[in-house]
C-alpha cells in the first residue's frame, strides 16, 4: 500500500438545472424589477418606485442581517431585535437634533459628518445594549425556543417602554439634513436624494459584510458555525464568543437600520422597531434562516414589491408581502437559500 492513489480525480458535475436552481433567487430581483416595469408602464414612475423599493429593501436588510446570523449560529430566535431598531433611531436622531448647526447648513460634508456621528453613537449604544440583552435575557434560555420567544418579547416591551420613559410618550418629528432633502431628476424621474444615499449605503454594508464573511477568518468561523457549530468547536474555536460578537454586531446593525429608517420616515416612535420586525421576519423567512445572502435578496424583494403594489393597487400593498412570503414558501418551504444544516 502506497500513498499515491491511482484514481483520476473527478468532481460531481453540476447539471444545468442545478445551476439554475442555485442562481434562481439571484434572478428574482431583476425579474421583479422587469415585471414592475411592464406593469407600471411609465419609465419615470417605475424608476422612482424602483429606487425607493431598493432603498427600503436595503434598510430592511441592515436590520435583518444580524437576526438571521444569530439564529443560524446558535439557534436563537430574538423577538426583541426590533427594540434595537427603535433604540438606535432614538439615539441617532437625538444626536442629530442636538447638532442643528451641522444639519441645517447646506454643506454636504457637515451634514454627512452629523449623520455619521449619529450612526456611530447609535451603533455603539445598541451594540452595548445587545451585549447586555444577550447576557441578561437570552443566555438563561439557550436551547429552549418557547422560552426564548417569550422572554425576548418581554425584553422588547421593556426596552420600548424605557424609550417612552427617557424620550417621552410622543413620536418625534425631524427634518433630514439640508443637503439630503429634495430630489434629483434623472430620465424624467424624481429620485429622492436620501433614497439614493440609502441604496448606496445599504449596498456598501452588504458588500462589506460579504467581504468579512468570505475573506476573514472570523467570517469563515461564522459561516462554518451556521452550518455545523459542533465541528467548529471541535476545531478549537470558542463559538460562544463568536456568537456574542455576532449578537452585538447584529444589534448595532439594527440600530443603524433604525437611524436610516428614522431619516427615511422623518418621524420616529418607540413602536417603529416592533412594526419593522414584521417585515424583517418575512425577509428572514423567505431568505432562509441563517443566510445573509438570502436575507439580502428577500429584503430587496419585499421593498420592491411593497412599492410597486402600493402604486398599482394601494389596498393590496398591506398584504402583498404576505402574498410574497406565501409564494416563496410554496416554491421553497425552507426559504430561498436555506443553510444546509449538518446533523
Amino acid at each position: 500500500m502506497t500513498a499515491a492513489p491511482d484514481h483520476a480525480p473527478t468532481m460531481t458535475r453540476l447539471s444545468a438545472a442545478d445551476r439554475l436552481a442555485k442562481a434562481a433567487p439571484f434572478l428574482l430581483v431583476p425579474v421583479l424589477i422587469l415585471a414592475g416595469f411592464l406593469a407600471i408602464g411609465t419609465t419615470s414612475s417605475w424608476l422612482t418606485l424602483t429606487v425607493s423599493g431598493l432603498a427600503m429593501g436595503m434598510m430592511i436588510f441592515v436590520m435583518a442581517s444580524g437576526l438571521t446570523l444569530v439564529f443560524g449560529l446558535m439557534d436563537v430566535i430574538n423577538f426583541g431585535h426590533g427594540a434595537f431598531v427603535s433604540l438606535g433611531a432614538f439615539v441617532g436622531i437625538s444626536v442629530l437634533l442636538a447638532l442643528p448647526g451641522w444639519t441645517a447648513e447646506p454643506s454636504l460634508a457637515l451634514n454627512l459628518a452629523a449623520v455619521l456621528l449619529a450612526i456611530a453613537c447609535a451603533m455603539v449604544l445598541t451594540g452595548l445594549s445587545g451585549w447586555a440583552f444577550e447576557r441578561v435575557i437570552v443566555r438563561p434560555v439557550y436551547g429552549a425556543h418557547l422560552k426564548q420567544i417569550l422572554v425576548t418579547v418581554g425584553g422588547l416591551i421593556v426596552i420600548e417602554q424605557l424609550i417612552h420613559v427617557i424620550w417621552g410618550p410622543d413620536e418625534i418629528f425631524l427634518n433630514r439634513p439640508e443637503t439630503l432633502q429634495g430630489a434629483v431628476t434623472f430620465a424624467g424621474a424624481a429620485l429622492e436624494k436620501y433614497r439614493i444615499l440609502a441604496v448606496v449605503f445599504g449596498l456598501a454594508i452588504f458588500l462589506a459584510m460579504r467581504l468579512i464573511l468570505r475573506r476573514t477568518k472570523i467570517g469563515l468561523i461564522v459561516r462554518a458555525g451556521v452550518q455545523n457549530g459542533q465541528m467548529v468547536e471541535s476545531l478549537g474555536y470558542r463559538l460562544r464568543l463568536v456568537f456574542i460578537g455576532v449578537f452585538v454586531a447584529g444589534s448595532a446593525l439594527a440600530g443603524l437600520g433604525g437611524v436610516m429608517w428614522g431619516l427615511y420616515q422623518e418621524v420616529i416612535t418607540a413602536g417603529m422597531g416592533e412594526r419593522m420586525m414584521i417585515l424583517v421576519f418575512i425577509v428572514v423567512i423567505i431568505g432562509g434562516l441563517g443566510s445573509v445572502e438570502g436575507a439580502f435578496i428577500g429584503a430587496l424583494l419585499v421593498g420592491l414589491m411593497q412599492n410597486y403594489i402600493a402604486f398599482l393597487e394601494p389596498k393590496l400593498a398591506l398584504i402583498s408581502n404576505i402574498g410574497l412570503m406565501t409564494a416563496i414558501l410554496m416554491w421553497r418551504p425552507q426559504g430561498m437559500m436555506p443553510v444546509v444544516k449538518a446533523k
Binding site: V141, K147, V151, Q161, H164
Partner: peptide, 15 residues
C-alpha cells in the same frame, strides 16, 4: 408605563 412592569413581570415569570 403599566406595560413595562408587565414586561418585567413576564420575563421574571418565565425564568
Amino acid at each position: 408605563r403599566w406595560l413595562m412592569w408587565l414586561g418585567i413581570l413576564f420575563i421574571l415569570s418565565v425564568y
